[in-house]
Design a protein around this nucleic acid. Sequence first.
DNA 1: TTTGTCAATAGAAATTTTTCGATATTTCTA
DNA 2: TAGAAATATCGAAAAATTTCTATTGACAAA
Lengths: 105, 105
Amino acid sequence: MEQIYFDTAKALKAISDPKRLKIVDMLSCGELCACRILDEFHITQPTLSHDMRVLTEAKLVNSRRDGKNIYYSLHAERLKELQEALSNVFTSSPDCICHRKSDHE
Amino acid sequence: MEQIYFDTAKALKAISDPKRLKIVDMLSCGELCACRILDEFHITQPTLSHDMRVLTEAKLVNSRRDGKNIYYSLHAERLKELQEALSNVFTSSPDCICHRKSDHE
DNA sequence: TTTGTCAATAGAAATTTTTCGATATTTCTA
DNA sequence: TAGAAATATCGAAAAATTTCTATTGACAAA
């Protein structure tokens, strides 16, 4: 199977959770520190840390340290790539598998 | 937490799998029967049946019976809605949570 | 350099997801 | 109507995810 399906699925999995989706939404207005994000949820600090790791490992979110705080922001380019990948999947393409012959036709 | 995050996350979860993402890609060229889809993967028939149920329950895919076969097709409107929901999440909005005051500011 | 604050990691329990073999259901055809 | 073909459902095992408590690590301020 083509790599693009694995890469796209991994990014989608990272945001296929209401909490992480809301975090991305929050970050869309600009960077926020972990403690600020934590305020919005009824979860423990390690749980948020895990969620942020999922988002950063999927390259959807950047992080930087400023003193004691970690600030998170969206990886805009990567998000755009994800949207484009989705558009490609959702719309017909000439080299689509379904244009090949099969025994069922 | 807002309902839109749950609804969107559920749809995303349905396609956050390389196999199901490829199935959507295949369907983007037009409807296909289950047996035709099964040909493309090294999985058993019950496994595909489960995957198709996930996609149809997320309303991303329609199904219809024609004789012995079940034909699947994309639910174009719903896919469009998903893309729009994602765009909203990815871009800044005036009522974003991060515009509210907090103790950290 | 000690102490307090913020975030990451370790380890574990609970839940969800994936995937299978076996079986049931639906429909066509002989 | 009996058998074959396509798909769905059941029940279970394995793997992945979620989320916690406890602890560690990084940094700043006193």
